[in-house]
Nucleic acid binder design. Structure first.
Length: 894
DNA sequence: GCGGACTGCTTACCT
DNA sequence: ACAGGTAAGCAGTCCGCG
């Protein structure tokens, strides 16, 4: 079996609840008694509290739920009292299993139970055996000899004829617990007679009813799903009492070329002193804890008066003071706390001999959790590509506190006037407090958007908040699908079973190395087009998954009579008898977004807070829906099913082709289109209506007007255009002048051109604009020729290192050449770093901007870039770069 | 030994 | 560690050329 298989079972990365080793478990047990004193006892009449996290308690050997009471703003722990145990499912009968010695003698083995499960490929119930264990580690862990490995290994040895199947053995125990008890993380619970019971919220229930009444035309099953989702999304959010934490550590300096640089201390060694810690609470707490240093005078004038500044003679006392806070706050927010702040504090505390029972941090391989509260590491959350693109619209490009802060809340890190270790108390405290402030504000801006977003996804995905904030969208989708399997008593198939039953892809991708054919891009008609309507399908792929009943069960189903229900452009077919889970769930999420949350988020009559909540929900849904097709084509997804992805893309191509044909039939010129959109030249409202109508009737798909452009400027290239909306705003898509690696020197002129284009209202006004544009380009060209740039930085290209510089073996791109020059100067570079370089005359034709001087710049190279940037627009405008800069074609030729 | 045609690599973008 | 499609620029290779 492939090695990957094991990784799939117990994913090492991201997941926060990793198994502890035997020794650390023993230690934990010893310490348990002491810790428990710090954790509040559940009061007799606990008010309705939010389920925020779930773990497995290794000592008590039961699931543990963390409940956040919004009244006391504390977290309470509830331990399972239902006797639920970890288990796996297998195709072997108890009789066969009893013959396997290693199963029976396994110390973690508990008992067998015969159960029935619906088999999603065979379309019938099958008998399977539940192998119950005393401990999740007995089912599957990193250690050798767990039950899920033993069963298939030993079955042949007892004369097994077929393969021994094992299912659902790689699900984390606390998730398994959530599924089996059909719990709703993020929702309200109470504890009654020591039982965990979900609580209703009456006014939200009324809204849920109202939403359901919108969907009465839907089949019963779908309606039930809509109701469940609506409840999860309508229930209110609490105020999350939280503290942002940032630490500063003494940082050894090294001298490079007379310049002092520093190396970030290793948090696993924690060899240097913690010099400053800022704690900023959502409740108004503002504290800076400073370590006293010999010879440095106390006194701070730069901090606001409401900040409490506390000096410590001993580092140990400082850290213990921080720990008090971590034992007390229900939510702790950091930026990269998993890999730095919390990790450093924990290791440093150990180095200083602080007792383990006093350390509130659970250090895992990749994450740091809290013994008491919930730790949210914003770095992980903002790093999430889906969050980056769909929730925040690509507003930040680099995931650093500085960049994210600047982009989302207009708050940058402080710039230091001196090397770090020479800072007086004032500047150090100020710097540290600023970081904590950015961190906290990243969770408070827009009415606590980020906290609510995490809460909304917690509810949809049925995961603990810690996992939601750290894991990717494919895990969110996987978990709610697994949850629904359990609800319906459907066996969750193994990845390789789906692949074996449904096969791979059949179409040929345009791009070499891709698995199947994707979307269509219609060749643009270059030039300036006035009155352009852009129509698109409302969330194309999720709609197709809904309308075409797509899912791993239904694609290429086993019923012969379904084979005639063919998917265009592929040899696949789809089931006509059963409804696919994915189709149902993704479909109802889509419907809720399109028909309720999206309109509600724009309803002006609603109170501001309501609108903002609806906006949170609609963007959470957007993030999930946008990934809902892609996951089926991703081998890392547990329900990976290539034919589903391939079919979805094929129907997408079919839909856009049909709609363009229909548009032309209606006498509308289609000037461009990409995946789910078509650009229509000067259509009448009637033509638009009949196209939308036709789509609804024939394709069962909603097609609407997305944009109205006063005019669109199409280049001859696909995915390259500029549109001026009726309100004068300019959409620039794909043009080089917009790309972030291009020097600002060129970008400035490009933006000036856009300003001119925004002014143009009619074809008659184009002439004036063209003259202005020619001027802009000529000026830029002349400035270059006369070498009149302001700063050399303006000429720098900025390119991200995809991997560490030494890792490039096939070719050496220019940014890597520049990176290697920096390395020679002792700069430390890694994957993800942004390299800024200028083009110079001498070999190797590039130089890091830090090391370059004005005189070495290769002006001709820059003229070339200027030309190619503007050519994309000029050909549509009927202008010529060489004429603009005053060269006749003949001169240029000679 | 050198330049053009070609392919492949890398990044940034679009939907 | 959700997908495929497109553009740009450069690196590297092959081939012809007295």
């Amino acid at each position: 079996m492939a090695k990957k298989h094991l990784d799939d079972y117990f994913p090492r990365s991201e997941s926060v609840h990793e198994e502890s080793t035997e020794s650390s478990m023993r230690r934990a047990r010893e310490e348990e008694r002491k810790k428990i004193e710090v954790i509040p006892k559940v009061p007799k009449n606990l008010s309705p509290s939010f389920f925020v996290s779930a773990t497995y308690d290794g000592e008590k050997r039961v699931a543990c739920i963390k409940l956040y009471d919004p009244k006391s703003e504390k977290i309470y722990f509830w331990y399972d009292n239902t006797g639920h145990k970890p288990y796996l499912l297998t195709s072997l009968s108890p009789i066969e299993l009893e013959k396997i010695g290693r199963v029976m003698s396994h110390p973690g083995f508990d008992q067998f139970k015969l159960v029935e499960k619906y088999h999603p490929f065979q379309d019938r119930n099958v008998a399977v055996t539940k192998v119950v264990a005393k401990d999740p580690l007995a089912i599957g862990g990193r250690s050798r000899g767990c039950l899920r490995d033993i069963i298939p290994e030993d079955y042949p040895k007892i004369g097994g004829k077929t393969e021994a199947k094992v299912w659902e053995a790689a699900i984390r125990y606390y998730q398994c617990y959530i599924y089996d008890r059909q719990l709703a993380p993020g929702m309200l619970y109470k504890i009654e007679n020591n039982n965990l019971i979900q609580v209703k919220h009456e006014s939200s229930e009324r809204t849920v009813n109202k939403i359901c009444s919108l969907f009465t035309a839907e089949p019963k099953k779908a309606l039930r799903n809509i109701e469940t989702w609506a409840r999860l999304l309508e229930y209110p959010a609490p105020n999350f009492r939280r503290v942002a934490l940032d630490i500063e550590v003494f940082t050894p300096t090294i001298e490079i070329e007379g310049k002092l640089t520093f190396r970030v201390p290793d948090p696993r060694e924690a060899a240097y002193q913690v010099t400053c810690v800022s704690l900023l609470g959502s409740d108004g707490e503002k504290r800076v804890l400073l370590l006293k240093r010999a010879g440095v005078r106390e006194g701070i004038d730069k901090l606001p008066p409401d900040v409490s500044v506390e000096y410590f003679d001993s580092e140990e006392n400082l850290i213990l003071e921080v720990f008090k806070v971590l034992w007390e706050y229900p939510f702790v927010i950091t930026f990269n706390g998993d890999d730095f702040d919390l990790r450093y504090l924990a290791h440093r505390a150990q180095n200083l001999g602080i007792k383990r029972s006093q350390i509130p941090i659970e250090v895992r391989r990749r994450v740091c959790l809290l013994e008491y509260g919930v730790h949210i590491d914003l770095y992980k959350f903002f790093f999430n590509k889906s969050i980056q693109i769909y929730a925040f619209g690509r507003k930040y490009l680099d995931v650093t506190l500085n960049e994210v802060g600047k982009a989302l809340i207009g708050l940058a890190k402080l710039e230091l006037t001196k090397p770090f270790n020479e800072l007086a108390y004032g500047e150090l405290a100020q710097y540290c407090m600023q970081d904590a402030e950015i961190t906290l504000k990243l969770t408070t801006f827009d009415d606590n958007l980020v906290m609510k977003l995490i809460l909304a996804i917690t509810r949809i995905s049925r995961m603990p908040m810690e996992d939601v904030s750290r894991q990717g969208v494919s895990r969110w989708i996987r978990n709610f699908l697994q949850f629904e399997h359990r609800r319906r008593n459907v066996l969750i198939p193994n990845t390789e079973d789906i692949l074996a039953a449904k096969g791979k892809t059949t179409t040929k991708a345009v791009i070499k190395g891709k698995k199947y054919k994707g979307a269509i891009v219609v060749k643009p008609v270059p030039g300036v087009h006035f009155n352009v309507a852009v129509m698109d399908f409302a969330s194309l792929y999720p709609s197709l998954i809904k309308v075409w009943n797509l899912g791993y069960q239904t694609i290429r189903c086993s019923h012969p009579e379904c084979k005639s229900n063919a998917i265009p452009d592929t040899p696949h077919w789809v089931c006509t008898k059963d409804r696919a889970l994915e189709s149902l769930l993704i479909g109802s999420l889509r419907d809720l977004r399109v028909s309720w949350y999206k309109p509600k988020s724009k309803e002006k009559a609603l109170p501001k807070e309501m609108r903002s909540w609806y906006n949170v929900i609609q963007s959470a849904l957007k993030v999930i829906l946008n990934a809902s097709y892609g996951v089926f084509g991703a081998a890392s997804f547990d329900l990976y099913c290539p034919p589903v992805a391939e079919a979805t893309a094929a129907i997408g191509r079919h839909s856009i082709t049909q709609i363009s044909n229909k548009a032309r039939e209606l006498g509308i010129q289609v000037i461009y289109g990409d995946t789910d959109s078509i650009f229509l030249k000067n259509p009448t409202p009637e033509q638009i209506d009949s196209l939308a109508q036709w789509s609804k009737e024939e394709l069962k798909m909603e097609l609407g007007v997305d944009k109205l452009y006063r005019y669109a400027l199409l280049s001859s290239r696909k995915k390259n255009y500029l549109g001026v909306s009726t309100d004068g705003s300019v959409d620039v898509k794909g043009l080089t002048g917009k790309k972030r690696h291009i020097p600002i020197f060129i970008k400035k002129s490009f933006n000036q051109m856009n300003e001119q284009l925004a002014q143009v209202k009619s074809p008659a006004e184009f002439d004036g604009a063209k003259k202005q544009i020619a001027n802009i380009i000529r000026n830029c060209y002349l400035k270059l020729k006369k070498r009149e740039w302001e700063r050399i930085d303006d000429l720098a290209f900025h390119v991200v290192l995809g991997e560490a510089p030494e890792h490039y073996v096939k070719t050496t791109p220019q940014h890597v050449k520049a990176a290697r020059l920096l390395q020679e100067k002792k700069y430390e570079l890694k994957a993800g770093d942004l390299i800024s370089f200028v083009k110079v005359v001498k070999e190797p034709h590039v130089k890091p901007v830090q090391l370059a001087s004005d005189s070495e710049v290769d002006v001709e190279k820059y003229v070339g870039h200027l030309q190619s940037t503007f050519d994309q627009v000029l050909d549509a405008l009927g202008l010529d770069f060489e004429e603009i800069i005053g060269l006749t074609k003949l001169e240029r030729f000679m």
